[in-house]
Design a protein around this nucleic acid. Structure first.
Lengths: 253, 253
DNA sequence: CGAGAGGACTTGTACAAACAAGTTAACCGC
DNA sequence: GCGGTTAACTTGTTTGTACAAGTCCTCTCG
């Protein structure tokens, strides 16, 4: 998808070469002069494209030395973090889901606070059990504001990602705030996830917003910590990237 | 600290104005033409400085519209995430620590694996109880490679940040990988942290590296989830920022 | 054989000019 | 008064040129 401007097309082309492996990890990129020759643009445009890739963390290097392809492209943080299905597939496993409840009711105080509503205002609640290779991994409680949540009745939530379904209907979620902590499993959650009551669960609470900054979803996801963890890689100056990872099996609780 | 190049100095100057409040949040920056006039540079240089600030997330804006100062500068993610002391102080609380053990012994298999050593190779183990307003919040188990760890005997670990002490001795930790999950508190940990045995703890395991990529520390931090959580804010395209936050008091476990 | 000088190559910085495209506000006509 | 057009202003894109500074290889000299 060439995004109009020349430097964007050039950046896309180079990204493509890196993704396809035409430019291997650790390998130096063609020199700027070479790229100028190949793409028929000016050096300024080439440098603008390279600057984009540098900001994305795809390449690194210093003065006098050709930039090299970075070790780990570390994926698309946003989509990966937002979508359970996308994460599981990226991990090489098979995602699944079972919708336990899809209901319209009054908002509970916590969700109402996060969504900027009054408690009791009508919202759409979704309770889904998420599976990884047919085993329960996560219990997802989502609360959507009414107009967005009503769209959920239009498609099958068991089919796949809710976010993908909403996106197809024009609802674009572009920002979210996540809080991660740990809780003891209540009786109901323990039964659904197949763990003992009181066992530690990894909890991620989420407020998701659309382009205009309006919060449209409040989520409370509870993971079996032996099946899912969160991983963060950070480097000084260069920004953070966060992805969920599947811990090695056989790890003791 | 003007970093030599003109565009870096210009970026520093603008950062300074934002930090000092001379450019308030939400306020538009001077136009590029205005900055050219004021600093006596070319427009390309001005644009390069603005590009830097944009990448740092300090400003945002689109074509035809003057860029505006962003809502939250969102701090220094790396230092904040690395240093317990810095985080607590930033949260407006009083940090404290009590070193329980500082020992030289053979590396256990997990730490050895993370540090690229053979199990049993000599390492330096540190066990510290971290306090927030005099109450225990986190139990920190760190394993340092021998040459780095020996430096710890030179200064008082109870005085403050180990990272600050190491930095003063020329050990610069610039990258780390963090894994977050939840575990049930073992008997010893429960006693030290003042929670019931089996209570859920938020665990962060960490491998920290120096400039050359060599892993020098493996850490296992266990938090009381009612006193510390992890928060992530992400926006599409724009990268992630992560900070630890103190949850509101009185929140039920 | 090793160390150092030199030069070719590469990226970083800075300036200048011109046009494209989006935003804003004033202005004019109805 | 209201709506649409226009014009000024602003940022985005692209090209061109020149020099500075760092890297890497080669060649020479001791």
């Amino acid at each position: 998808m060439p995004s109009g401007s020349l430097h964007a097309k050039l950046a896309d082309a180079l990204r493509e070469r890196i993704a396809s492996g035409a430019l291997a990890v650790g390998e130096p990129l063609p020199s700027e002069a070479r790229l100028v020759e190949e793409f028929g643009t000016s050096r300024g445009t080439v440098r603008q494209a390279l600057s984009t890739l540098r900001n994305e963390g795809l390449i690194e290097g210093g003065q006098g030395r050709r930039p090299v392809v970075r070790r780990r492209p570390m994926g698309q943080p946003f989509e990966t973090f937002l979508s359970f299905s996308a994460w599981v597939e990226l991990s090489g496993h098979r995602p699944g889901q079972h919708t336990i409840e899809l209901a319209r009711r009054g908002a509970d105080p916590v969700a109402a606070g996060a969504l900027g509503l009054e408690p009791g205002e009508p919202v759409i609640d979704v309770l889904r059990l998420r599976l990884l290779d047919d085993e329960p991994v996560m219990l997802e409680r989502s609360t959507f504001v009414l107009d967005i949540g009503l769209l959920l009745f239009d498609f099958d939530p068991d089919a796949g990602s809710i976010y993908a379904g909403l996106l197809a209907r024009g609802v674009e979620i572009v920002a979210a705030t996540h809080t991660i902590d740990a809780i003891a499993a209540p009786t109901d959650d323990a039964r659904l996830l197949g763990v003992a009551k009181g066992a530690p669960l990894l909890r991620e609470r989420r407020t998701a917003r659309t382009t205009d900054g309006r919060p449209v979803e409040y989520g409370d996801d509870r993971y079996r910590p032996d099946r899912a963890t969160f991983t963060i890689a950070n480097e000084r100056a260069h920004h953070l990237a966060l992805v969920r990872t599947v811990p090695e099996t056989g790890e003791a609780l």
